[in-house]
Design a protein around this nucleic acid. Structure first.
Lengths: 216, 216
DNA sequence: TTTAATTTGACCAGGGTGGTCGAATGGTGT
DNA sequence: ACACCATTCGACCACCCTGGTCAAATTAAA
């Protein structure tokens, strides 16, 4: 469609990648308004003019990145989730694992998405706004829909147990991410962390699920 | 000591308060570098000149706010905690309640403290830097020290149970705060939320503590 | 060689920055 | 009435950074 943006898309992939990552990071850290095109071109190692040769304006660059991120998150993360899994812990484990993998593949996309997902800093064209809304809802459904709460212990409100399990797993993820700041996700061997994670899950099952022996 | 800052401190409290809150909020949302003295004076309803009549520079203003926040958090929050309470849930409940109360008293201080606690945006004089470090450690101790982990169920690693309980309670707090965004904390009736909170705690106790009947 | 597609960075007007300062105001003591 | 000093203001300063432009240089294609 646009003649201008087509110029960018016909670049060799590695160059596209460099520019995209520089821009993603800048917008992720600074938000739309405070992001600086000067810093982007410097980080990307291109002249100022090129950015406006590839994109007509800062706004168009931003919209391109939103579109790119939406497609990335959908194809590399959400589409891979098995929404048929009825067991909460199984489901959350899957979500955690797939998210980790996608994040290791492109960390900046996720940092950037955190920005545009909850802050309407730049008013986007309607089409993008609705796609963002759809992504939010898809994420919500993957987390909340089709979970079999009858597996939880019967002497407690299943909705509350549901939340407690979710918060626990979120808590582990957050703390792990905090422990790992500064390192490149892609270069980390996650095996020992998964082991630790599964130990936590075992406790959660023992504590919050109906025990099998109980049927005795 | 400083003649200049004494001018500020001899202002009537309500005026100090207005200026302080305006500055706290600006630094909280923008960080040191991007915070604008122009916006501060506009929000505080004073002329530009006055800010530099009370404080010699932006830096000195920032340091004053750090000092003020440290004292606030210590006296209105940390000092009130009973560090002798050995029961984890009791202790965390206490921390949650006292923090809520202090936060309702001055929300901006806590938002601002989140900024200076983990980002050394402005290099502070050594004295302040160490006081910040002490505050961090005091908070850490209140959360981790002197907890009786023998109350947890015996068939699971007590350190892991400890973390799971902490993450659960943090999770509830975070979600509550998210649910309440936009409202003035001071104007909220927290009674129903505390009730809900205690329902969660009951489940945590049932699930993670050694049951009394077990001694039968 | 001619023509067209890339690439650059100096440059632009506009806006925001922390900080200054001369002037105006108000209060106090005499 | 006067002088004196603390307080208050906002126009103003020099500087920096902004998104975006463009003439000129370079490279590629014809």
């Amino acid at each position: 469609m646009d003649i201008i943006i087509a110029r960018f898309e016909s670049l060799e992939e590695s160059k596209q990648h460099t520019i995209r990552q520089a821009a993603l990071e800048e917008f992720a850290v600074q938000g739309y308004k405070k992001a600086s095109t000067n810093r982007i071109v410097k980080a990307a190692g291109i002249g100022k003019g090129m950015l406006f040769y590839y994109f007509t304006s800062k706004q168009e660059l931003y919209e391109y990145l939103v579109k790119y991120s939406l497609e990335f998150i959908e194809s590399r993360y959400l589409d891979k989730v098995d929404a048929g899994e009825p067991d909460l812990i199984e489901r959350l484990t899957q979500l955690a694992r797939l998210k980790m993998e996608a994040q290791a593949e492109n960390e900046e996309v996720f940092k950037f998405s955190a920005v545009f997902l909850q802050e309407g800093e730049a008013h986007l064209p309607e089409e993008l706004a609705t796609r963002i809304e759809e992504l939010k809802q898809a994420g919500y459904r993957l987390m909340y829909e089709g979970i079999d709460k009858s597996r939880f212990r019967k002497d407690a409100d299943p909705d509350k147990v549901f939340h407690l399990i979710r918060w626990s797993i979120d808590g582990y993820q957050q703390e792990l991410l905090a422990r790992l700041t500064g390192q490149k996700l892609a270069e980390i061997d996650f095996a020992p962390y998964w082991e630790e994670f599964y130990a936590y899950l075992a406790i959660l099952k023992k504590s919050f699920y109906e025990t099998e022996e109980e049927s005795r």
